[in-house]
Amino acid sequence: MAAVPAARNVLRVIRYLAEQARPTHAAAVARELGLPRSTAYQLLGALLDEGFVVHFPEESTYALSTALGQLGTSADRATRLRRLGAPLLTRLLGEVRLPVVAQLGILHGQEIVYLAQESAPRAPSLVSAIGVHLPAHLTATGRVILAHLDHAQVRALYPDRESLVIKAGSGAGAGPGTLRELDELLRDTRRRGWGLENGEITDGYASVSAVVLDHNDYATAAIGVTYRTVAVDQSVLPEIAAAVGAAAGALGARLRGR
């Protein structure tokens, strides 16, 4: 493989800045990456000129701009997730060996949107088909993503009790009716380590889910399985959750390029 040190160093700077919780001094970039200080300034200057880095002059620090995220959007993040995740859903069905439907979803405002779906033999038909939008706080996939957002982000999505009210005709059952109940539900989800929904979308159906984390440990998607409650013994839920968690972890590894 041909050595392209300048290109590699640019990518190293971008990755380093992406890992930082706050804007960073150029000297720190140079020190941590083992670069000459002049090289670090040149690379940061080029990234600044191209709009990929912002400079905070009062602090003499640098941070990534939103341009990289916009590139990801233009490359169709949903399509990338679907292509990476669909084979893992098929593998998940083989590991669970139960009449379940495996799904991959992302958060879109207050809704969960399903990007991919695979069904095992004798699995039920669901309302949550590919492209369908469902209230996030009522679904297992939505709940596990919400549980990994910070409190301010959740409040931005659900600012008041009225934001939890489901529109007429959605077919959704009872869920958290107050912000306190929503907070408690998300705390339970974090404590458990996986998402759970039972009869709140369709009576007699339940779902288990796990979050997909990207390279910044951000909740970018969720994988879940849905089943008829009469067809699955509740004692095996921890085993199902472990298999779903492994699939979600594998998708996260693929997103990180590993």
Score class of each variant (00 low, 15 high):
residue 202 T to G: 06
residue 92 L to I: 10
residue 197 E to N: 00
residue 244 V to K: 01
residue 1 M to E: 04
residue 99 P to R: 01
residue 64 L to S: 01
residue 88 L to P: 11
residue 179 L to Q: 13
residue 90 T to W: 05
residue 147 A to E: 02
residue 93 L to M: 05
residue 250 A to T: 15
residue 14 I to G: 08
residue 19 E to W: 08
residue 95 E to Y: 01
residue 152 A to T: 10
residue 173 G to Y: 13
residue 89 L to G: 15
residue 128 S to M: 05
residue 29 V to E: 00
residue 32 E to L: 12
residue 135 P to Y: 03
residue 93 L to N: 02
residue 17 L to W: 13
residue 57 P to Q: 01
residue 25 H to K: 04
residue 34 G to P: 08
residue 238 P to S: 04
residue 59 E to G: 12
residue 6 A to G: 14
residue 169 G to C: 02
residue 164 L to V: 13
residue 59 E to M: 02
residue 187 R to Q: 13
residue 214 D to M: 01
residue 99 P to K: 05
residue 166 I to R: 09
residue 52 F to D: 14
residue 91 R to D: 10
residue 30 A to V: 14
residue 221 A to Y: 13
residue 159 P to W: 01
residue 3 A to Q: 02
residue 157 L to K: 14
residue 125 S to A: 12
residue 199 G to H: 00
residue 116 A to G: 12
residue 134 L to H: 07
residue 11 L to N: 14
residue 207 S to A: 02
residue 176 P to R: 00
residue 92 L to P: 15
residue 142 G to L: 07
residue 18 A to G: 14
residue 220 T to I: 03
residue 26 A to F: 08
residue 185 L to A: 11
residue 83 R to M: 05
residue 105 G to H: 09
residue 136 A to F: 09
residue 145 I to E: 01
residue 63 A to R: 00
residue 163 S to E: 04
residue 178 T to S: 08
residue 79 T to V: 01
residue 34 G to Q: 00
residue 121 P to V: 08
residue 120 A to T: 08
residue 10 V to D: 12
residue 56 F to Q: 11
residue 49 D to I: 08
residue 42 Q to K: 08
residue 89 L to N: 10
residue 41 Y to G: 01
residue 96 V to C: 06
